[in-house]
Protein backbone atom coordinates (compact mmCIF):
# COMPACT_ATOMS: atom_id res chain seq x y z
CA UNK A 1 0.00 0.00 0.00
CA UNK A 2 1.33 3.43 -0.92
CA UNK A 3 1.12 6.38 1.45
CA UNK A 4 1.35 10.06 0.44
CA UNK A 5 4.21 11.97 2.07
CA UNK A 6 5.77 15.37 1.55
CA UNK A 7 9.51 15.88 1.53
CA UNK A 8 11.40 19.14 1.83
CA UNK A 9 14.95 19.97 0.75
CA UNK A 10 16.58 23.34 1.39
CA UNK A 11 19.41 25.31 -0.12
CA UNK A 12 20.73 28.65 1.08
CA UNK A 13 21.58 31.47 -1.36
CA UNK A 14 24.08 33.85 0.17
CA UNK A 15 25.40 35.94 -2.73
CA UNK A 16 23.82 37.78 -5.62
CA UNK A 17 24.20 35.90 -8.88
CA UNK A 18 25.15 32.70 -7.07
CA UNK A 19 24.72 29.34 -8.77
CA UNK A 20 24.32 26.36 -6.51
CA UNK A 21 23.91 22.72 -7.39
CA UNK A 22 22.95 20.23 -4.72
CA UNK A 23 22.04 16.57 -4.77
CA UNK A 24 19.56 15.07 -2.34
CA UNK A 25 18.81 11.46 -1.71
CA UNK A 26 15.38 10.22 -0.79
CA UNK A 27 14.51 7.20 1.32
CA UNK A 28 14.45 3.88 -0.48
CA UNK A 29 10.85 3.41 0.56
CA UNK A 30 9.75 6.32 -1.62
CA UNK A 31 8.54 4.93 -4.91
CA UNK A 32 7.11 7.81 -6.91
CA UNK A 33 7.12 11.60 -7.06
CA UNK A 34 3.77 13.12 -7.93
CA UNK A 35 4.50 16.84 -7.77
CA UNK A 36 6.99 19.61 -7.00
CA UNK A 37 6.69 23.01 -5.36
CA UNK A 38 9.18 25.80 -4.70
CA UNK A 39 8.94 28.22 -1.80
CA UNK A 40 11.27 30.55 0.04
CA UNK A 41 11.55 32.58 3.21
CA UNK A 42 11.72 35.64 0.92
CA UNK A 43 9.10 34.93 -1.71
CA UNK A 44 9.79 38.03 -3.78
CA UNK A 45 13.45 37.13 -4.30
CA UNK A 46 12.60 33.62 -5.41
CA UNK A 47 9.81 34.88 -7.65
CA UNK A 48 11.76 37.56 -9.48
CA UNK A 49 15.32 36.22 -9.40
CA UNK A 50 15.22 32.44 -9.38
CA UNK A 51 15.81 29.94 -12.16
CA UNK A 52 16.59 26.27 -11.69
CA UNK A 53 17.09 22.88 -13.23
CA UNK A 54 15.52 19.84 -11.57
CA UNK A 55 16.55 16.27 -12.23
CA UNK A 56 14.98 13.18 -10.74
CA UNK A 57 16.78 9.88 -11.15
CA UNK A 58 19.22 11.57 -13.59
CA UNK A 59 16.33 12.61 -15.83
CA UNK A 60 15.84 16.30 -16.48
CA UNK A 61 12.31 17.48 -15.74
CA UNK A 62 12.85 21.23 -15.81
CA UNK A 63 15.71 22.60 -17.90
CA UNK A 64 18.30 25.14 -16.91
CA UNK A 65 16.94 28.70 -16.94
CA UNK A 66 13.41 27.53 -16.04
CA UNK A 67 11.94 30.29 -13.90
CA UNK A 68 11.14 29.51 -10.29
CA UNK A 69 7.94 31.53 -10.37
CA UNK A 70 6.42 28.93 -12.66
CA UNK A 71 6.73 26.38 -9.87
CA UNK A 72 5.39 28.61 -7.08
CA UNK A 73 1.81 28.91 -5.88
CA UNK A 74 0.28 31.86 -4.09
CA UNK A 75 -2.36 31.93 -1.39
CA UNK A 76 -5.05 32.06 -4.06
CA UNK A 77 -4.45 28.36 -4.68
CA UNK A 78 -5.98 25.87 -2.31
CA UNK A 79 -3.34 23.93 -0.34
CA UNK A 80 -4.28 20.64 -1.93
CA UNK A 81 -3.57 21.94 -5.43
CA UNK A 82 -0.31 23.80 -4.88
CA UNK A 83 2.05 21.18 -6.26
CA UNK A 84 3.06 21.16 -9.92
CA UNK A 85 1.78 17.84 -11.19
CA UNK A 86 4.48 15.62 -12.68
CA UNK A 87 2.41 12.49 -12.98
CA UNK A 88 3.80 9.49 -11.16
CA UNK A 89 7.55 9.63 -11.70
CA UNK A 90 9.51 6.60 -10.66
CA UNK A 91 12.23 7.70 -8.25
CA UNK A 92 14.70 5.03 -9.42
CA UNK A 93 17.91 5.64 -7.48
CA UNK A 94 16.10 8.25 -5.37
CA UNK A 95 18.49 11.07 -6.25
CA UNK A 96 17.13 14.58 -6.78
CA UNK A 97 19.44 17.20 -8.23
CA UNK A 98 18.56 20.87 -7.88
CA UNK A 99 20.71 23.39 -9.78
CA UNK A 100 19.60 26.86 -8.73
CA UNK A 101 20.77 30.20 -10.12
CA UNK A 102 20.10 33.62 -8.64
CA UNK A 103 19.70 36.25 -11.40
CA UNK A 104 19.81 39.99 -10.71
CA UNK A 105 16.51 41.80 -11.18
CA UNK A 106 15.91 45.47 -10.52
CA UNK A 107 12.56 44.89 -8.81
CA UNK A 108 14.28 43.38 -5.78
CA UNK A 109 17.37 44.07 -3.73
CA UNK A 110 19.38 41.05 -2.70
CA UNK A 111 19.43 39.55 0.74
CA UNK A 112 20.39 36.03 1.70
CA UNK A 113 17.46 33.69 1.30
CA UNK A 114 16.44 30.07 1.53
CA UNK A 115 15.02 28.06 -1.35
CA UNK A 116 12.88 25.08 -0.40
CA UNK A 117 12.01 22.30 -2.79
CA UNK A 118 8.93 20.35 -1.72
CA UNK A 119 8.16 16.99 -3.23
CA UNK A 120 4.81 15.26 -3.11
CA UNK A 121 5.77 11.58 -2.91
CA UNK A 122 4.30 8.17 -2.42
CA UNK A 123 6.05 5.71 -0.12
CA UNK A 124 5.51 2.11 0.79
CA UNK A 125 3.60 1.91 4.04
Amino acid sequence: MLKAVKKRFDIQITASGQSLSKTFEMDKSIKTVRGVLLTSDKDDLLYYRGTQKIEINSEEFFPENYESKLLMSGINVSPKQRYYDLGNVNTGNGIIKLSYTDNPDTRTSFAAYRVSLYLDCEMEA
Partner: peptide
Protein backbone atom coordinates in the same frame (compact mmCIF):
# COMPACT_ATOMS: atom_id res chain seq x y z
CA UNK B 1 -1.14 41.85 -2.60
CA UNK B 2 1.83 41.08 -4.81
CA UNK B 3 2.30 38.71 -7.70
CA UNK B 4 4.39 36.42 -5.54
CA UNK B 5 1.77 36.14 -2.81
CA UNK B 6 -1.45 36.00 -4.79
CA UNK B 7 -0.51 34.30 -8.04
CA UNK B 8 -2.59 31.34 -9.07
CA UNK B 9 -0.91 28.13 -10.06
CA UNK B 10 1.08 28.44 -13.27
Amino acid sequence: AFAYTHQTQC
